[in-house]
Design a protein around this nucleic acid. Structure first.
Length: 275
DNA sequence: ACTATTTCCTGGATGC
DNA sequence: TGCATCCAGGAAATAG
C-alpha cells in the first residue's frame, strides 16, 4: 500500500522516465468512479501537454503540465496539474503500447516518445483528477517543525494512531509508518494524542522522520501487490519492527507483539516497550 | 468543530 | 476441489 515513501519512489521513477515527454492522447476506462474530475475534463487537461515534471505531495503523485505548443490561444485558467492517488493497489506503468493491458487498467496516456503511461488499480481506491494548483490538506511530515508537530496533536482527544493517519494534519502517513513511528516513540497507538508529553512528541516526530527517510532510502517498502514506476515487482522490504508482526517477539524485548483495531485499522505494538 | 463509524472494491487467504 | 466468508486499507461520506 503506497504511503509517503512508496509514492516518493514512484514519483521519482516516473519523473526520470516521462519528464519532458508530451501527451498525445488520453483514454479513460468506461467506469468513471476513480475520477474526481470528469473524464472529459481530464482528457482535455492532459491532451497536448508537456510533462514538465513528476513529484510527490503527501500520498499524491503530481504531474506538472504545460502546453506543448504555446500558441496565441492560451485558454486562460486551464488545469495545469494531473493528480494521481494510488489508493491501496494502484500503480503507474510506463510501457510499450504493444504490451498486454492489465484487466484493471483505468487510464492510458499515449506519449510522443511512443510509450504509454497506464494507471492500473484492481481495487479502485485510487483517484485521478486535474487541478490548477494542488494543495495537500496537511503538512509534510518531513518538513514540519517540531514545534508545529507538537501543536497539531496537543489538542486532539482522538487516539494518536488516528491522528497520525489524519491527512488533514500530516500528509502522507499511512498505517504502516504510523505503527512503526509509534514503536520508535515507545507510545501505544490508543493513547489520546493530547496525553503525549513533550518528550514523547519529540520522539514521535523524530521516529516518524527517521522511518520515512529510511524507507525512502530503501526505495519504499510494500507488503503486497503493486508494480513500481520501473515495472519491477514490489519494493525493497523495509524491516518492519511491529507492523504485521502480531504474536512475534518484539525485536527489543522479545514480548509478543499485540494487534488491536483502532478506527477500523489494525495497529501493532509491543505492550512492554510502548506505554 | 470534532470524533467515530460506515462505505467503497477486489483478490488472496481461510475454513468447512 | 469448490464455494462462501473474511479481511486488507485511504479517504470520503455519514452520523453522532
Amino acid at each position: 500500500m503506497p504511503e509517503l515513501p512508496e509514492v516518493e519512489t514512484i514519483s521519482r521513477g516516473l519523473h526520470k522516465r516521462v519528464a519532458g515527454d508530451v501527451i498525445e492522447s488520453v483514454w479513460l476506462g468506461s467506469k468513471p468512479e476513480p475520477l474526481k474530475s470528469s473524464a472529459a475534463e481530464i482528457a482535455a487537461a492532459l491532451q497536448a501537454k508537456t510533462i514538465i515534471g513528476v513529484r510527490r505531495s503527501g500520498k499524491h503523485i503530481v504531474f506538472d503540465l504545460a502546453p506543448a505548443r504555446p500558441g496565441p490561444k492560451s485558454n486562460g485558467a486551464q488545469p495545469a496539474q494531473w493528480i494521481v492517488h494510488l489508493g491501496m493497489t494502484g500503480s503507474m506503468q510506463v510501457c510499450s503500447p504493444d504490451s498486454d493491458r492489465d484487466k484493471h487498467t483505468h487510464a492510458v496516456v499515449a506519449l510522443a516518445s511512443g510509450r504509454e503511461l497506464r494507471f492500473v488499480d484492481p481495487r479502485r481506491f485510487g483517484r485521478l483528477s486535474v487541478v490548477e494548483n494542488f494543495a495537500p490538506p496537511g503538512t509534510e511530515p518531513l518538513q514540519i517543525s517540531s514545534q508545529n508537530f507538537g501543536k497539531i496533536f496537543r489538542a486532539r482527544k482522538t487516539p494518536i494512531k488516528s491522528a497520525l493517519l489524519n491527512q488533514k494534519l500530516l500528509s502522507g502517513v499511512g498505517n504502516i509508518y504510523a505503527d512503526e513511528a509509534l514503536f520508535r516513540a515507545k507510545v501505544r497507538p490508543r493513547r489520546r494524542a493530547s496525553s503525549l508529553t513533550h518528550a514523547e512528541l519529540a520522539l514521535l516526530h523524530k521516529g516518524l522522520k527517521r522511518v520515512l527517510q529510511e524507507a525512502i532510502r530503501l526505495g519504499g517498502s510494500s507488503i503486497s501487490d503493486y508494480v513500481d514506476a520501473d515495472g519491477e515487482e514490489g519494493f525493497f522490504q523495509l524491516k518492519h519492527r511491529v507492523y504485521g508482526r502480531e504474536g512475534k517477539p518484539c525485536l527489543v524485548c522479545k514480548t509478543p507483539i499485540k494487534r488491536v483495531v483502532i478506527a477500523g485499522r489494525s495497529s501493532h505494538y509491543c505492550p512492554k516497550c510502548q506505554k
